[in-house]
Amino acid sequence: MLELITFSTLNGVLYGMLLFMMASGLTLIFSMMGVLNFAHASFYMIGAYFGFEISRRIGFWPGFIVAPLLVGAIGALVERYGLRRVHKYGHVAELLFTFGLAFIIEELVQMFWGKLPVDYRVPPSLDFVAFRLFDTTYPAYRMFMLATAVAMFVFLFLVLKRTRVGLIIQAALTHPSMVAMLGHDVPRVFMAVFGVGAALAGLAGVIAGPALVTQPSMAALLGPILFVVIVVGGLGSLAGAFVASLLIGLVQTFAVAINASLADVIGPSADIFGDLGRVTVAQIAPVIPYLLLVLVLVFRPTGLLGNRES
């Protein structure tokens, strides 16, 4: 039981941090530009594939550094030459643009790497057991993922709170045109935020790729969960996205680990629920985030920490 709790907590926090690595960029982009970027999870996927390709040719570590930078550059170009041009046709056009982009990226990935999962491996230098609790072991690579995610956040937090660029970003979240009229190049700030958001998603892909499965459907599988995270957290709220990421990370990990049904808990009287009484928590785990989404939308439409009207 203790192992289950320890490992599920660790895995839940890890999954949550990975989610936040993407949700943070997504929500920053949304509050600045009002664009829900449907292609955000695609940047995560490109990160994983670039990481795979570089690690196969040169090594894991060069990929760890270069792949997120490449993805960030692609993100910045997408903003500069794609979104910015579409912007004048309104939010629907922007939404459709990112939607189309997600499909294009998926097709391109299939063209280059095929439909089957690729063999993106944990590097030998990190392929050992970090610790053992009773009979269960915990891989060092997962600890490395956790450390990377935490380091990234400390860095981002410091940039946002302590630097001039961070202050400009914070101000532009609520008053972009005022910031511009003080002489700051807001379009360039937008491009940078979009690029950094993409790079973060790419980094998440690079480190998640070897631990999960690197395949062309990984973006489509993750995208919906990301939207759940930022809506549950409150659209545009960074703190909300953080709380919701951890919440969904933990809930899902625990749900998968708990192999109990209603019948196991309350005994034969669960028969009045029919088959429902025999469904295990693990079986409904994939639905839980969406259940949470519906509950939040019904009881707290602004999200946990959001204060937007819309």
């Binding site: 045109s177 511009a180 009229m181 003080l182 002489g183 700051h184 190049d185």
Partner: peptide, 8 residues
């Protein structure tokens, strides 16, 4: 011109 250029 763009607002930030004018401000500058």
């Amino acid at each position: 011109m763009k607002p930030h250029q004018i401000a500058r």
